[in-house]
Structure formats: C-alpha cells, structure tokens
Write a protein that binds this DNA or RNA. Structure first.
Lengths: 202, 202
DNA sequence: TGTACATCAGTGAACGCGCGTTCACTGATGTAC
DNA sequence: TGTACATCAGTGAACGCGCGTTCACTGATGTAC
C-alpha cells in the first residue's frame, strides 16, 4: 500500500494540476499586492479557481497555508543573504542588514506573516521554525565573523548580534506599519544609515 | 441650547455612570489579560454589563475605541519616560530604552494596538497621532541631549536616534511576538544589554 | 486490450458562528415655568 | 412644588456579512488482472 502511494504524485496530474502550489502562489501574490488585512481561505480558493473546500485536500487548515507561505518567505530571505558575499566581514554585515530591510520593504505583508503578529499559532509549525532559525542564524554568524571568535567573552558578540537584529527588525516594522509617516519630519533615518552608524562605532 | 448642553455632563450621572471610561478600562484590562487576538466590540459591551450597541452612544466605531486605548498607551509611555531623570545624558538615554522595552513587555497587547499592526486605519485618528509623536519626541530629544547640539551635522544624531528607536521597538516586537523562543539557545540578549552596547560604543 | 475496481481531487450545499452596525423603542434624568 | 416637556443613555431585535470547516457526493485518473 505504501509502495503504491509513493508513486502517486506525477507532479502535474489530476484535475487542477498542482493546486497546492497554486494556492501558495496565489497567497503570496495577494499578500504582495498589498492586502494588509488577513486574507481568507475562501478568497484563496476563489483566486485559484476552485471551490471553497478544495484546499482541504492539500492543507489541514488555513494556518497551515499561512505557515508555509511564511516559511517560503524566510527561505527567500536566507537565499538573498547567501548571495551577499562581500569579503570584508563588517561590510558584509552591513549589507546583510540592507538585505533584511529591503526584503521587508518589498514584501511587507509577507514579512508580517513571517513574524506572526496576527497569528501566534503559526509559530507552532516546525516548517516555519526551521526556516526562521536558518535566517536568523545567518545574521548571527555574520556578526561573529565580524566581531567574535578570538575573545573568550562571547556575550558581547551576542549582544551585538541581538542589537543588529532588533535594529533591522524594528526599522522594518516601523516602516511597514506606517508609523514613521506620522512623526515629526525626518525623524527616522534610512535603515542602512542607522545600521552602519552602529557597525562603524563598534 | 449650547449653553444648556455644556452643563450636561455631571460626570457620574445617567444610567450606567460613565460608560465611556468603563469601556476603555475594560478594553485595556482585556488586552493586558493576554487577549492577543483582536477583541470585539460586543465582548467589551458584555464585560461592561451593557447591551451590544450601547457603546455607540460614546464612540463612533470600534476603531475609535481602539485608537483611544492606543493613545492612552502612548500617554502612559510618555509619562514613564518623563519620570526618568538621571542627570547623565547617556545614562538617561539608556534608561529610556529600558523604560520603553519594559512597557512593551508588560503590556504586549496594548503595545501592539499602539502600533496598529492589525489595523492600519487606527493611524488616522489624530488623538493617536499626537500621543505617539509625543512619545517618540522624548526619545529623539534624549538622543540629541546625549550626542547632538554642538555639531553642524545633525544627520548623524538623527541616525542614532533612529537606530535606538528601531532597536528598542524591534526588540520589543521580537519578544512580544514570541519569535525569540524558537531560536538557537540564547541568541538574543536582553534589550538593555544591546542598547547599552550601542550607546557605549558611540 | 478490456473490464472492474480503487484512489483521490475535486464539487455544492450547508453548518454554526460572531461580528459591526442600524433601527425603532423605552425609560430615567434634568429643566422651564 | 407640580407638571409638561426635552434630552439622551440605554435596550432588544434584527440586518447582512463572510468566515472556517464538514458532509456526502461525483467524476476523472490510475491500476490489477
């Protein structure tokens, strides 16, 4: 029985073709199109040209779809970070900060989903946890490469990694949530300026 | 007619007493009790011991209540910052960062409401904008007191204020959203350590 | 090659839900004379 | 002081809504013999 079912997925077979991926694609597209509010499962089905309950063939629940979208977001972020290969460790660290905030600015709704502000339960999905850990690991590793290793006291390095990560995440959220726009003129500098101001000082 | 209505509010009169404040109190209490999900207008009315539509006597919409709760949050944050009077500017700045993250940790759901992650529309309420601007102004002013003034080039000071604000906000959100808990052991340092690491380096 | 059968990705209708908001109203409170 | 009236903070019922999810089903696809 198991050996039979193992062959069952010819990748483009059956009625729709590949509804699972279609749903994920549509979800991602919807988020990127600016739907800041939580999108609905029925809407996703509608956009995929399929009945409201069809998604349940491929996902156990709405949350499972969102968790997968979030995980894909983290994977993309990690990939972008990996593509940044500047040889000078501090410069590379600064550029990773740029990569981070750029991603957030380009995909605000996806970014929100990744951090589960609305849905605490998303964090329970292992697929999301793993993808997220990988992304954060990149930033921590780059910080260690820039400042750590030699010293016996790594707490300081850890504090620096935390500070940078908090900085880029905070800046991203302030911008995404539209907070900066109702502040006194110019009271927030671009993230890259802020991050570099910190990195340069260390 | 106007002169008559000017006297109309004896402060504890009428049926309920002071439903407006009762609703705000109940909303705040609910948020603090850990209701991360969006609370409903009907639930607030229920908790205030009043029918579902009674709130409309005092607020135009649900959003108006949330905006007022958020504004109160910012006012409280500002008040806490004002209470911090350490004479040494850099130390005071570091302590303001602590005040900020402490507030967020103590009132996560209120903090979220303040930053309208779920409700972009909240930002449109002037009462909220004003309260928020005041809070941010405190942090900017403290940064200027610590680093600015003398120099002609204030861009650097602005970048520093942005960096610190992003840092405390980012750290707060990471903690509030439960992100830190699924990271490799100890990969985030307490906010005060991170903030002080930055302030000390400058 | 043809037939009987198993699999499984879809459908259509319905479920129960709680929501924000509106309506016409009631009844307590305050005010003018 | 008593009465007639205006004000206004509440009530109860209902609105229409879209939601996530479940149910019994259909019909296309793949498989064994």
């Amino acid at each position: 029985m198991t050996s039979r079912t193992a062959l069952k997925k010819p990748k483009d077979a059956y009625h729709h073709g590949d509804l699972r991926n279609a749903l994920l694609t549509v979800a991602r597209r919807e988020l990127d199109a600016g739907s800041y509010e939580q999108l609905s499962l029925r809407e996703l089905a509608r956009l995929a040209g399929v009945s409201a309950n069809a998604p349940y063939r491929h996902f156990a629940s709405k949350d499972e779809i969102l968790a997968e979208v979030a995980a894909q977001g983290f994977r993309e972020l990690s990939a972008r970070m990996d593509a940044e290969r500047h040889p000078e460790p501090k410069e590379r660290l600064a550029r990773l900060c740029d990569v981070y905030t750029t991603f957030a600015s380009e995909h605000p709704a996806v970014y929100r989903t990744m951090f589960g502000a609305e849905k605490q339960a998303l964090m329970d999905f292992p697929v999301l946890q793993e993808a997220a850990s990988t992304s954060f690991g990149r930033l921590v590793a780059a910080t260690i490469a820039a400042y750590g290793s030699g010293r016996p006291d790594e707490r300081e390095t850890l504090a620096r990694a935390s500070a940078l990560w908090s900085l880029v995440h905070g800046w991203s959220r302030l911008v995404i949530d539209g907070v900066t726009c109702f502040l006194p003129e110019g009271s927030i500098a671009p993230a890259s300026v802020s991050a570099r101001a910190v990195i340069a000082a260390w």
